[in-house]
Each structure stands twice: as structure tokens, then as C-alpha cells.
Amino acid sequence: MDHTRSCPDCDVSAPLSVNRRQFVQSAGVAAAAAVTAGISLPATAADEKKPAPENLVADLYESLTPQQRDKMCFAWDHQVDGAPLRTHVSNNWSITDRRTMNVGGPFYTKDQQEMIEAIFYGLYNRDWHDRIRKQLKDDAGGYGRAQTIAIFGEPGSDRFEFVMTGRHLTIRCDGNTTPHVAFGGPIFYGHAAQGFNEKADHPGNVFWPQALKANALYEMLDGKQRKLALIETAPYESEVEFHGEAGGLPGIPISELSADQKEHAQSVLETLLEPYRQLDQQEVRHCLQRQGGLDQCSLSFYKEDDIGNDGVWDIWRLEGPSFVWHFRGSPHVHVWANIADDPSVPLNAAG
């Protein structure tokens, strides 16, 4: 593996119903919401004509040569240094060799490159595709230049997973075959829109509106609530293991908010989920419901690293028994999300 870090603080197969090239080029590489694992999702007529990312993963797998499979396909439980590679998450890493196996390079054929691109954008809400392109351009010079992939298990079987990594990127496609977890496992996203050290208002950062939405809830809190919600020192960003059902979560419990504050907390959650396809959004909601819903979560803000000392908190965290969404906005945006329906699910994360 190539674990080169360019960020200084980053220590079920079905036949295609349309041509792959048309799929990549249409609707800004928009992908359909999948109907897998018994979950029924709303879709437009146009969406229903497009292959789900999981189907494309199966087609990609079938197209690989033995030499390609040897380098980027792994057993479901493949380990590196005693830890499962499939569940690793970091803020800047390569799951395979970035120098020779980036998704836009000659390791893959043109047809395979198009499938990989379609899989990737198919994991996002199509309304977010332009913002994702901007993030990739700002952070990595664009899509296809510094991203790598791996496939675990066999697509079409009862367990498989496609993983793409890069700077400010870990995202997965598993067709809901990974038990108990959303997104197929922990994910990471981030953006350094204006260089490494961003200004207080994070100009051009596609993810900063998430923090503004959360800070708007802080402004709704009264003095007593703010004392609960605001904490001096933040946990390290990669510390997103689950607390479980023992309680003692930091911050203000959502259950103690007023009706209008709870409504806004729900809108914070929806803003966090908005970039992703409906299938993954629904899986997150399912996991959250299994642990008692948003009322079992807490919201915390941190005084530490408040850029510009403006009281718009750059670091904040929404957390439940088996739900962690950690937003770090200093010196630029890093976000870690780890969601399951069972707090015993282990984490393999590196900062």
C-alpha cells in the first residue's frame, strides 16, 4: 500500500440497461438509487433505466484481468499489519498504489475508468456532483488523478465491498452486504478550498454550510443549554469509536431540546446526509432508529481552534450510542462519520 500523505496534518450483479459511456456522461454522471437488500427507494423514470453502482462494481470485477485482480482485489477479511484493510479509514491515504494504480491512469482500460467514475458519482446525490468535483479539483487536482480503489469479496455474493480512497476521501459501495453498518463502514470527507489554512468563513468550502447549519442550532440555545453544549477541548478527530449505550455522551442531549430546537437538529442531520444517494441516507436512518433515534444522541461544540475567535464553532460533533459524525473545520474541513446499528462494531481508523 502507498500511505503517502499530502496533507501535512494527516499523520448483486444485474445486466447493464444502458451503455456505460452514456451512463457516465448523462446527468453529470448521476446514478440511480438502488433497490437492494429489500429496501425500496423512490426513483424517477430516468433513474430506473440506469444501473446501480453495485451492478457496475460487478461488471468492473468481471472485466478485470488476472493481473489486475491480483493487485486490487482482496478477500473480505484481508488484513494489513494485523488490521482489516476493508474497514480502514483515514484523512489522506491510498488503499492501493497511487503511483501506478490511480483510477485515471493506464492500469485501467478506458471502459474500466468510465465504470469506476460512474460507481463513484453514483454514490452521491446528483445535486452534489458539481460540489464533489470542486472538492476533488481543489484537493487532488481533479477526479482520476490521485484516487485509488480496491474490491473486497466477490461482487454479486452475499458480501462484497468497493472502496475508493484519496486525499480527503474514503467512500464505499457494498450493496448493503456489510452487516450492521451504514455506508459499508466508516467514511471520511473534507475540503481545503483556499489552501491549507482557511479563513473563518471558509470561502468556497463545499462542506462549510454543514457547520453553519449546526451553529444556527447553537444560536437557538439558551444560556444553560449552551453551558452543556460548549466544551473547551475537542477529542482528536479520528476518535470516532462508539460510546455504546452506557450514556455519558458529551454535549447537550437532543432529548432535552425544545420542539423547535429538535426540528432544527433533524435538519442538521438531513444536511449531513444530503450529499449521499438515497440508499445510503436510508441506511443511516435505519441504524439511527435501531439505537433509539436522534433523541438518543447529543450535540457538542468545542471552543478549541475557533478560527477568527468569532464564536462560530469550527469543531462540533453529533454523537449517539453507535453514531458519530465529527466535523473539524480548523485549519480546513475534515469530517469523519461512523454509523452502525450495534455499538460493538469495531473501528479501524488512523489520523
Score class of each variant (00 low, 15 high):
Thr65Pro: 07
Met101Leu: 13
Phe120Asp: 00
Asp9Tyr: 07
Gly190His: 05
Lys137Gln: 15
Thr165Asn: 04
Thr96Val: 10
Glu237Ala: 06
Asp59Val: 07
Lys50Tyr: 12
Thr96His: 03
Asp260His: 08
Gln261Glu: 15
Val57Tyr: 01
Ala234Gly: 09
His264Arg: 08
Arg133Gln: 15
Gln261Cys: 11
Leu212Ala: 10
Asn102Arg: 13
Cys297Phe: 04
Tyr218Asp: 08
Gly122Asn: 06
Phe323Gly: 00
Arg290His: 09
Ala229Lys: 10
Ser26Tyr: 10
Lys262Trp: 14
Arg133His: 11
Asp97Thr: 11
Val35Trp: 07
Gln282Gly: 08
Pro253Met: 04
Gly292Ile: 08
Arg98Trp: 09
Asp47Lys: 02
Leu230Val: 15
Asn197Tyr: 14
Glu270Ile: 04
Asp201Thr: 14
Met220Thr: 03
Trp325Lys: 03
Leu85Ile: 05
Ser6Thr: 13
Lys224Trp: 06
Asp260Gln: 08
Ser90Thr: 01
Ser255Trp: 01
Val24Arg: 15
Lys213His: 09
Pro186Gly: 00
Glu154Lys: 15
Asp138Pro: 05
Ser63Asn: 09
Pro8Val: 13
Gly320Lys: 05
His326Ile: 02
Val29His: 10
Gln289Val: 01
Leu279Lys: 03
Gly185Lys: 00
Gly184Gln: 03
Asp97Phe: 05
Gln289Asn: 14
Thr165Pro: 01
Ser90Lys: 02
